[in-house]
């Protein structure tokens, strides 16, 4: 199991009011899955993704990532996990402005403890070619369309060869045509063995995923475990 969480709780206390963004979530995601986390806004789906992506820490509960207990790690340990095991794609791309696509893609390797500096340029160029931007490596984000920017962001997420990719509304700021291109790229990456966990509220985007997890009011109401036709237990 790549991801295994049990009884995840995330609560915020403002004054004497405690609100639960996540209220006892348990779920597991296996290697090579393509999962869409769905739900209305305020359902807690983004909070769940942020905790899975080690950007946020749960109030209580356990999180095993690749067999390692993540809850309770220090900020520095989490930073290393994010660098080596996780890739992120954001709704608003989050590229460094006035910085070339190539440098944006190279960025994670500067924080890596293991990535060899000599391979940096070669791998970044290769990844940009793979996402179809081989001719635009020196362009800055301002000179790229939304779809192209998101592809730079995907290349950046792949830079340190992570086993899992987290995407928060990756097509939220894109037109339909670009959205389709991005989802095709995700499908292709998933076919190559990368696990993808994506948050979306659009049904047609969620269709690209092999499994949909539905979150409502901080609880998972559907898809917490992998269901397949040849898994008789899941049907009962």
């Amino acid at each position: 199991m790549l991801i295994e969480v049990k009884n995840l709780v995330k609560s915020y206390t403002v004054g004497d009011m405690t609100t639960y963004a996540l209220d006892g979530v348990s779920l597991s995601i296996d290697n090579g899955e393509f999962v869409a986390i769905m739900g209305a806004s305020g359902s807690g789906k983004s909070t769940l993704l942020n905790i899975l992506g080690c950007l946020d820490v749960p109030t209580s509960g356990n999180y095993l990532l690749d067999g390692v207990e993540v809850s309770g790690m220090t900020a520095t340990q989490l930073a290393h996990i994010r660098n080596e095991k996780l890739g992120f794609v954001f709704q608003n791309f989050n590229l460094l402005p006035r910085t070339s696509a190539l440098e944006n893609v190279e960025l994670p390797t500067f924080y890596s403890r293991t990535f060899p500096a000599s391979k940096r340029r070669e791998r970044a160029t290769e990844l940009l070619e793979r996402v179809g931007l081989g001719t635009r490596i020196m362009n800055t984000p301002g000179q790229l369309s939304g779809g192209q920017q998101q592809r730079v962001a995907i290349a950046r997420a792949l830079m340190c060869n992570p086993p899992v990719l987290f995407a928060d509304e990756p097509t939220g700021n894109l037109d339909t045509r670009s959205s389709v291109e991005i989802m095709k790229l995700f499908t292709q990456l998933n076919n190559e063995g990368i696990t993808i966990v994506m948050v979306t509220h659009e049904d047609d985007i969620a269709h690209y995923a092999k499994r949909n997890i539905v979150v409502r009011d901080g609880k998972i109401i559907k898809g917490a475990k992998f269901e397949s036709a040849d898994d008789p237990e899941a049907h009962t």
Binding site: G53, L55, A75, T76, A79, H80, R82, N83, E84, F88, N94, L96, L107, P108, Y111, S112, R156, A157, C160
Partner: peptide
């Protein structure tokens, strides 16, 4: 702030 957030998301430690 957003740049700091991004750098942290892709692996910058507090020390970095």
């Amino acid at each position: 702030t957003r740049e700091i957030g991004l750098r942290m998301a892709i692996g910058a430690t507090p020390l970095d």
